[in-house]
Amino acid sequence: MSHHIVEVKNLRHVYPDGTVALSNVSFRITHGESVAIIGANGAGKSTLLQHLNGCIAATAGEIAIGHTPLTRGTLPHIRRTVGMVFQYPDDQLFMPTVFEDVAFGPLNQGLPDDMVAERVREALEQVGAAHLSAKPPYHLSGGEKKRVAIATVLAMSPDVLVMDEPTSGLDPTARRQLITLLRRFQHTKIFTSHDLDMVLDLCPRTIVLHEGTIMADGATGDIFADDRLLEACRLEKPFVMQGCPVCGMKGK
């Protein structure tokens, strides 16, 4: 049995005000896959991600992580397996220092102190933030916060990494560094993003959401080549595929 499989069947979510955020969403993501979930604002991407580790309860449908169905009883196990990096790192960093923040998850897992320290050191080194260990999170730059937020999740050794808009708000260099970092991870990865160039770089497979339903699920190259699909879902091709507006050179 692999812990890395994510299976969603007929997922439906209706908010208390009656808004149908997700309807009949089904997919299966297998071990080591890197999958992007894209769509316009309000398509249901963030709602879908929050279902994957039980932050939101489904109105109907089933979710299974590594063949373990997501229920109230399996929630602690699922949350250990699925590491969630939120869109705004400020929401994720709440302890007085970076070290304590990264240690928060492993301590909750009940690990002994020396192992916690080792996990924190490894996670911070992996994201190139070991030198920030003693700093308070609110003194970090946007890029540093994002990396530390990823380290907080890596320290829990998750099997599946779920990230909501990982590159939003980053400068070009920090964005490039993050993409390089994410490419190195061997986990099953699920991203939502409006940064379609990043999606093209990192994810061989893409799921397109539109108004809460899956419009397409397939190879990223094929999806970005489908102009009608992109237009219907209020999306555009990645810049790298659009060609140069100055010299007229065609995109990739």
């Binding site: 929401d91 916690v116 907080t152 999740v153 829990m156």
Partner: peptide, 24 residues
């Protein structure tokens, strides 16, 4: 709303109502 997001982030990292201090 923001407090809810922070709480969700805490739950995602195994928070069960207890803060475990690292400093011995």
């Amino acid at each position: 709303q923001r407090a809810e997001r922070i709480h969700t982030a805490m739950l995602s990292r195994g928070f069960t109502g207890q803060f475990h201090g690292h400093r011995q």
